[in-house]
Design a binder for these strands. Structure first.
Lengths: 147, 147
DNA sequence: ATAATTAGTTCGCCTTTCTAACAATTAGAA
DNA sequence: TTCTAATTGTTAGAAAGGCGAACTAATTAT
C-alpha cells in the first residue's frame, strides 16, 4: 500500500512534466493560437468563471498574486481580457474575456485537443476511461489549495 | 469515443499543470533539496542514464539543445554533474552525477514523494491503481518523441 | 479614530526557454 | 582523399514566468 503510493508519486513526478512539455509544444505549433500554457490557463479560468477576482484566479492557478497580476497585465495589453474594478468592494477587480480572448482560448483549446487526441487515438476505450478516472481523482486532489 | 478522447484531452490540459504546480511548491519547501523541476528532471535522468550525451538528455526532457546546455551548465557549476568529453566521438559529452548530485536528487525525490504521498494518502487502493495504470499509459504515449 | 487586514500593483531579481549564429568533429561523396 | 554534409555542443540575446519585498488603496475591527 505504502509502496503503491510511492510508485504513484514517482510516476506523477516523471510523467506530469512530460505531458506538459507535449502540450506546450503542441500549443506552440497550433495555427491560430500560439499561446503559452499559463496564459491559456488564465484565459480558460476566466472563461469558466467570468467576473472572477485576481485572488480567486491566483488560487486556482496556484500562483502568487504578483505573478498573476503580471500575467493578466499582458492579457489586458493584448485586449484578451478586461480588468474592471468591482463597485461593491473597490479593492477588488473583476476579470472578463473579450471576444478576441474567447476566440483565442477556443482555438488554442481546439488545437491542443486535436493534437492530444491524435496521441490518445491509439488507446482503447477502457484505457481512455482509466485515464479519465485518474484525471478526475488527481484534479480533485490537486485543485486549488496547493498554496 | 471521439467524445471520450476530447474529454480526456481537456482533463489532461487542466490537470497536468496543477500537478506540476503542486510538485513545484512541494519541491521548494522541501528541506534539504530546494531544486527546480527542470533541474530535478535533469539530475534524475542522468542518474538513471549515466554517461548520457546532451542530445539524449534533451530528447528525453523535450528541450532544445541550447536550453539543456544551459541547464547542465548550472549543474556543473554547482558540482552536481560532471561533463566530460567522450573519446570515441569528441563532439559528444558524457554526463555523470557527482556524489553531491546523487544525494541532492535523492533527497529532493524523497521530499517530493513524501508530500505527494500525503496528498495521495486519502485514496483507496483501487483508486491508486487507476492512477498508476493511467500514468503508465500516459508515459508511454508522451515519452521522449515530443520534438 | 486608529489599527489591522485584504486586494492588487510595482520593483528587482532569477530561472527557464527559445532562436540564431557559431565552432568543432565526424561521416559521406566526388 | 579532399571537400562538403551533417551532427554535437556552446554562446549570445531576448522573452516570459515565477518569486519575495515593499507599496497603495480600500475595508473591517478594535
Amino acid at each position: 500500500m505504502a509502496k503503491l503510493i510511492d510508485t504513484c508519486s514517482r510516476e506523477l513526478m516523471d510523467t506530469a512534466p512530460q505531458i506538459i512539455q507535449a502540450i506546450r509544444v503542441e500549443m506552440r505549433r497550433g495555427r491560430g493560437s500560439d499561446i503559452s500554457i499559463p496564459l491559456f490557463r488564465t484565459l480558460g479560468f476566466v472563461q469558466r468563471n467570468p467576473y472572477s477576482s485576481l485572488s480567486n484566479l491566483a488560487e486556482h492557478l496556484g500562483l502568487t498574486l504578483p505573478s498573476d497580476s503580471k500575467l493578466v497585465d499582458g492579457l489586458v495589453k493584448q485586449k484578451l481580457v478586461t480588468r474592471r474594478e468591482f463597485m461593491a468592494d473597490r479593492r477588488m477587480i473583476t476579470l472578463v474575456l473579450t471576444k478576441a480572448g474567447a476566440s483565442i482560448v477556443d482555438s488554442a483549446r481546439a488545437d491542443a485537443q486535436a493534437n492530444l487526441a491524435q496521441k490518445l487515438g491509439g488507446l482503447s476505450i477502457d484505457e481512455l476511461e482509466t485515464i479519465y478516472q485518474a484525471m478526475k481523482l488527481l484534479r480533485s486532489i490537486f485543485a486549488g489549495q496547493s498554496r
